[in-house]
């Protein structure tokens, strides 16, 4: 992999993401407002049910806590779900020319990043409304970078499997629900046996560290930061490795 190849891949991913973004707003009246509406609706439902779902009294700034968890998980969900089919839907290109197939996966991550930006605007409004210091908000990109790499790594693995197994998207949509519930999005990180499940879920660390940063404006601990950095780079590199190994066979299998 040369620098030139990486440059080409990124530029192609970006234009693919831009087109997909336009396509998604095609023929809808509310257009980009859907990006705001979807997380807001989810937020409202959980917020109204919060008394029933979990004991939220001892969580400081629960609305921010909830929204940040939601939008971070949303990013992971959208990226991975789009990627599972990304190679198969672009079979026409992959079969007919030498094209960097990585771009199809990277573009779905960039596409989710676009909608993540809209969700971040809501978060910003919330933080201003609840009078929380904005320092944490501007620290968020560092955590997001880790989350981005982690999601990309998972997407590379899923996209490679998707070429061999057609129904991976069905399997994944079940698995992602499990992940959703095992991430402390609307509830507090529990102690005892339940927290073991949380700790096995890699997303837990990203959400945890981001909350600490955004809500309190502090870094949890250097150990946690290093852990997420290592976690995301391991996932990214191994995902990329699997993808590179299997991509030579893609054209024949599609």
């Amino acid at each position: 992999m040369t620098i030139d190849y990486i440059k080409k891949t990124l530029s192609l991913s970006f234009s693919l993401a831009k087109t997909q973004f336009k396509l998604r707003n095609e023929g809808s009246y509310l257009g980009i407002f859907w990006y705001l509406l979807d997380p807001l609706a989810m937020f409202l439902i959980i917020f109204l049910l919060s008394g029933v779902l979990a004991n939220t009294d001892d969580i400081k700034n629960y609305p921010i806590y909830l929204l940040l968890g939601l939008i971070m998980f949303n990013f992971f969900r959208q990226t991975t779900i789009n990627s599972t089919n990304s190679i198969v839907t672009n079979a026409a290109f992959i079969k007919s020319m030498r094209i960097s197939s990585e771009s199809f996966v990277v573009s779905s991550a960039i596409l989710s990043f676009f909608s993540h930006l809209f969700e971040l605007v809501i978060l910003l409004f919330f933080m201003i409304f609840f009078k929380i210091s904005l320092i944490g908000f501007f620290l968020y990109p560092t955590v997001f970078l880790f989350l981005f790499l982690f999601s990309l790594g998972a997407s590379f693995i899923l996209a490679s499997i998707g070429v061999y197994v057609n129904d991976i998207n069905n399997v994944w949509s079940v698995l992602i629900n499990l992940l959703w519930f095992s991430t402390p999005i609307f509830y507090v990180i529990s102690f005892g046996s339940a927290s073991v499940i949380n700790k096995l879920n890699p997303l837990f660390y990203f959400v945890n560290i981001a909350r600490e940063m955004v809500i309190s404006g502090s870094i949890l601990s250097i150990g946690q930061v290093v852990l997420t950095a290592v976690l995301s780079s391991v996932f990214f590199l191994s995902g990329l490795f699997i993808f590179e190994k299997s991509k030579t066979k893609f054209a024949e299998l599609l």
Partner: peptide, 16 residues
């Protein structure tokens, strides 16, 4: 579902 203008950009970038 895209306009001709957008398609030219998309095709162009796919073709390198």
């Amino acid at each position: 579902k895209l306009t001709m203008r957008e398609n030219i950009y998309l095709m162009g970038s796919v073709l390198g």
